[in-house]
């Protein structure tokens, strides 16, 4: 076995840095994220709440495909259901990820998708219930950057 030197291993990574540095899209600001939340709630308060759950990996091997599941505890009846859930990524070029529109017919307020994350950051989910209340949760995803892209 031929040894890989520290210099080689480091250079492997730095070569990638040179490639990935090309155009840096600016990341969203916290103000932008808060603005998006305000737009979603119409100015109403969205407090952190245990009824909304966000399932994301602790570490994503690649930011291009990060699985995500969101669920809200609700009976999902005609007069008591989850209307919408917005998903925002705090440090993406644009915070918006997706908005799920549920109906009483959903039966269970739960949906999954796969998202792009530009860097390690918080993912925010805010739910709007049919009673006009808003509920929020946040989760951090560490995004692995600088591997052997190929």
């Amino acid at each position: 076995m031929k040894e890989m030197s520290r210099r080689q291993a480091l250079a492997l990574g730095s070569g990638l840095v040179a490639i990935t540095l090309l155009p840096l899209p600016a990341t969203a600001s916290i103000e932008e994220v808060n603005e998006d939340i305000k737009k979603f709630t119409g100015g109403a308060e969205a407090a952190e709440s245990a009824i909304i759950k966000l399932e994301v990996p602790e570490i994503a091997e690649n930011g291009n495909t990060v699985p995500l599941s969101v669920s809200v505890d609700s009976p999902m009846t005609a007069d008591n259901y989850v209307k919408r859930v917005i998903l925002l990524a705090e440090k993406n070029p644009n915070p918006g990820v997706a908005t799920f529109h549920f109906t009483a017919r959903s039966g269970v307020a739960e949906a999954s998708t796969r998202m792009r994350l530009a860097t390690t950051q918080n993912v925010v989910a805010v739910a709007e219930l049919s009673d006009g209340s808003f509920h929020m949760t946040k989760s951090t995803v560490k995004v692995t950057i600088g591997g052997c892209g190929g």
Partner: peptide, 25 residues
């Protein structure tokens, strides 16, 4: 979307720490 960001730069700084250590995942 190519995912590029400032963390790539700072990742260089932690490169030594992450260099050839046993798998964390």
């Amino acid at each position: 979307m190519e995912l590029k960001n400032k963390a790539t730069v700072s990742a260089l700084g932690v490169a030594f720490a992450a260099l050839l250590v046993p798998g964390l995942l």
